[in-house]
């Protein structure tokens, strides 16, 4: 069974790029357009890995991660933040919220696959 990945981003182009890349590598990908949508979709399904953008309308990435970590089925699922910053503030915020790691935007598809393979194979 292919691994399932949820990608949460308010930018359709980024979402499509992530989704296309991962699908091409054999993963099953679900897209969500903001934090709230991501949370709803995460609740409705089960994912092996979640990517989330930080800045989004309705619910931002940090809030999404916190909310997901509050759900029993997502206690230990890897959640990676897609972020344009890699400063310490972001890192400590992300770590505190329960993120597994971060990936800096802009990134290219190869980098994305590298991370995904590292995390879930």
């Amino acid at each position: 069974m292919p691994k399932t990945i949820l990608t949460v981003d308010d930018s359709a182009s980024i979402r499509q790029m992530v989704s296309f890349t991962l699908k091409g590598a054999g993963y099953t990908v679900t897209e969500a357009m903001d934090g709230q949508d991501g949370l709803d979709k995460a609740r409705a399904g089960r994912f092996d890995l979640i990517f989330t953008d930080q800045n989004m309308p309705r619910m931002d990435g940090i809030s999404l991660i916190k909310a997901l970590r509050g759900l029993p089925q997502y206690k230990t699922v890897p959640i990676l933040m897609l972020t344009t910053e890699s400063g310490d503030a972001m890192k400590s915020q992300g770590r505190a919220a329960g993120a597994t790691g971060w990936l800096v935007k802009p990134f290219d598809p190869q980098k994305l696959l590298e991370v995904v393979r590292k995390v879930i194979g």
């Binding site: 092996d48 970590r69 206690k75 230990t76 699922v77 890897p78 959640i79 990676l80 890699s86 890192k91 992300g94 770590r95 329960g98 993120a99 597994t100 790691g101 971060w102 990936l103 800096v104 990134f107 980098k111 991370v115 590292k118 995390v119 879930i120």
Partner: peptide, 13 residues
């Protein structure tokens, strides 16, 4: 990119 040691999800990693 980076991964937080000891964070949830790292078990899988």
């Amino acid at each position: 990119y980076g991964l937080f040691g000891g964070s949830p999800g790292m078990g899988q990693v």
